[in-house]
Design a protein around this nucleic acid. Structure first.
Lengths: 238, 238
DNA sequence: CGCCATTTTGAAGGTTTTCAATGTCAGTGG
DNA sequence: CCACTGACATTGAAAACCTTCAAAATGGCG
C-alpha cells in the first residue's frame, strides 16, 4: 500500500489559479471564487519514474489529477500477466471517486506531478458545488466511451490493426491537448505498448517493422515516431 | 436511425412509484416527492426481440433504463465484424447522457420494457436535483470499472478463462439483482457470447464441451446452465 | 413429423506466442 | 576515446491456440 499525500500549506491558495492544465481538466467548470476553496481541498504530490501511486485493491482514499507527466494504469493477474488499462496524460484524472478499492494499479512514467483529492472531502465538495459533480459525470461518461472503444480493439482487431489504431489515436490525442502530433513521442516502452494492446513485445516490434517497410511510419528514435501518411495509416486500423 | 419514444400521458404519474426495479436503478436516490416530477420527464417504450433501440453514431437524444428484459450493446466494424460491449439487465441504463452521438448500437434480446429520458430534459433535471447527478456519477463510475475489467479479460485471458469468467460473472450478477443464480439462464445465443468474448462461436462451443466433460457445468438446455462447483469454475478464470 | 435455425464436432490453416539469439543505444569507467 | 555493461528492441524458427471451412447433430416450433 502506498503512502498518503501530504498537504502543502504554502501553495494551496494560488495553485489552482496558476494551473497550466486547468482548461483540460474537470476543474475547468469552476469560477475564480470557487477555485479558491477548491485549492484548499487538494494538495500537490510528485512522483518519479516507475514509482507506484497506488496498487489495485488498496483501500481507495484518493483521486488524482495529472498536472505534468504521464501515468500508466494496469491490472495484474495472479500469475504475473499484466494488462495496461490506459496511458494517462496531463488533465486526466484517475484513482477512485466512489469505490472502496482501487480497481487498478497506477505507476508514474517519467517524472510526474499530480493534484490529490481526498475521496470523502471531494464528495462533500460535490454536494456544495453540483456543477463539479456534473462535470465529473461528463468526464467519466467520456472515459467510459474510451474504455468501450478499447473493448472492441482488444476483442476484434488484429495485431497490425491494434498498432495502427494506437498510433493514430495518440496522434489525435496530442492534437487535442495542443501538443506536437507528428512526429509523436511515445513515453512508454515497447513492452508497455504490448501490455496495452494485449500483444507480446515481439509482435509489437514485428508490426512496427512492417509499418516501417510499408513507409507508414518512420522511427526517428525508438520513442519518436513520424507518421508520413496518417490517412493511409488510418486505413490499416480496420 | 430509430424512431423517438412517445410520451404516454396516462401512466406518468404513477409509473415510478410502482416501478419494480427502482431499487436497482439510478432513480433509487429520489424520494416520493421528487419522483412525481421525475415520472413526468420520462416515458415508457417497449421493444421486441432483435429490435434496434438505436444505432451507433445516431444523434444521441435519449437515455434508457431497462425495467424488464435484456439488451445487447455492440459496435460494428466496416467489414461486418461485431463486438458486443455488454449485455444489460433490468435496472441498467444505456444510451448517451452527454455525447452527441451514440457510441454503440443497442438491440433488444427478447421482449423489452424501457423507461426513456430526453437527454436535454434530463440534464436540466440534474441541475435542479444534484442528488441524481451524483447517483448517475456513481453508476457511471461503476460501469467504468466493469469496462476496465473487460479490457483485461479481452486483452489477456485465454478462451477457457474468458468463458469461465463469463459464467461466474453472470452468476454473481444474478445474485446481486436477486434472481436465481444457479442454474443460470442465458438469454443470449452462443454467437452473442462469442461476440461478447472476442471469440468465434466454434471456440465457445468447444470450451462449453470441455467444461461439460470436466463436470464444471451441466447444460440443462442450451440456455440453462447449472454450475455444480462454482469455486472450481472460478479457478479456471485466471 | 419435418423443417430450419442453432449448436456441436472435425480437420486444416493462420496468426500470434514462445523460446532463443542477435542487435542497438545510452551511460559508465578504464 | 573506446570498450564494457545492462536495458531495451529486433529478428528468427518452432509451437500453440484459435480460427476457418465443412459437415453432422440437436432442438424448438409450426
Amino acid at each position: 500500500m502506498s503512502s498518503a499525500p501530504i498537504l502543502n500549506q504554502e501553495t494551496i491558495k494560488t495553485r489552482c489559479t496558476i494551473c497550466k492544465i486547468r482548461s483540460y481538466s474537470f476543474c475547468r467548470c469552476l469560477d475564480e471564487e470557487r477555485l479558491e476553496k477548491f485549492s484548499k481541498i487538494s494538495s500537490e504530490k510528485n512522483y518519479t519514474n516507475k514509482e507506484n501511486i497506488f496498487i489495485q485493491n488498496d483501500p481507495a482514499k484518493h483521486l488524482f489529477n495529472i498536472t505534468e507527466g504521464n501515468v500508466k494504469i494496469y491490472q495484474l493477474l495472479d500469475d504475473g500477466r499484466i494488462q495496461i488499462i490506459g496511458f494517462l496524460y496531463p488533465g486526466d484524472f484517475f484513482g477512485s471517486y466512489k469505490n472502496n478499492k482501487y480497481n487498478y494499479s497506477a505507476e508514474a512514467i517519467g517524472d510526474l506531478k499530480t493534484c490529490v483529492f481526498d475521496q470523502k472531502i471531494l464528495e462533500q465538495y460535490l454536494d456544495e458545488n453540483p456543477v463539479l459533480a456534473k462535470e465529473l459525470l461528463n468526464q467519466t461518461s467520456f472515459e467510459l466511451t474510451v474504455a468501450q472503444d478499447r473493448i472492441t480493439v482488444l476483442g476484434k482487431l488484429s495485431a497490425i490493426e491494434r498498432i495502427s489504431t494506437f498510433l493514430t489515436n495518440i496522434s489525435e490525442q496530442r492534437k487535442r491537448i495542443g501538443w506536437q502530433n507528428n512526429p509523436i513521442s511515445l513515453p512508454m516502452t515497447r513492452q508497455d505498448i504490448a501490455d496495452y494492446l494485449g500483444l507480446t513485445i515481439e509482435t509489437v516490434s514485428r508490426e512496427f517493422s512492417n509499418l516501417k517497410s510499408s513507409n507508414l511510419i518512420k522511427v526517428i528514435s525508438s520513442k519518436q515516431i513520424y507518421l508520413p501518411n496518417i490517412d493511409a495509416l488510418k486505413d490499416q486500423t480496420k
